[in-house]
Amino acid sequence: MTELGMTRRATMRGLALGGALILAPGALAAVAAPDRRSATTAALLRTTFPHRALTDDFYRSVADRYLKEVAADPAAMKAHDLGLAELDGSHIAPFAELPAVIRRSLVEKVDQLPFFKALQWRGAEMIYRDPAVWKLVGYEGSSVEYGGYLERGFNDIDWLPKAAAGGQG
């Protein structure tokens, strides 16, 4: 943690706690504006779970659902906002508008913080429980209604070396 970073985080904490708006330029929008919060969260989700085939709208909708859940816990929302402020505070551009490689390096600085761990865990559930994502990665899900995979490819592998494929049964 740099001294500058410490100062900025302390400032953000003061902001969130006291509501007194003594502003650093990059920090303004991160705490308050719902649009910025949503955009930064969506960009953070894409940086954490980057799939080229998933659209910005997809990450935005996951972000909005996530924020709605976090809103139920003011302390968690405060921590989330502080984390976003850290990401948006680069003084170059808002996090969501930065190139992927820079976004990655910024996330590396916060990836041990509880707000990020929480987003990772719940984000993994929201993204990888989504049937649209299953389709993308090639997972077929519930099978009982189709009689299982017994007649639907449970043993259809065709690329193994012939000599080795013995099998017992």
Partner: peptide
């Protein structure tokens, strides 16, 4: 009682293990 039939994940394990 017969064994269960071999499926894909097992066939990969078996082929690699035999090698």
């Amino acid at each position: 009682l017969p064994f269960l039939p071999p499926g894909n994940n097992f066939k990969v394990l078996e082929a690699g293990a035999r090698k």
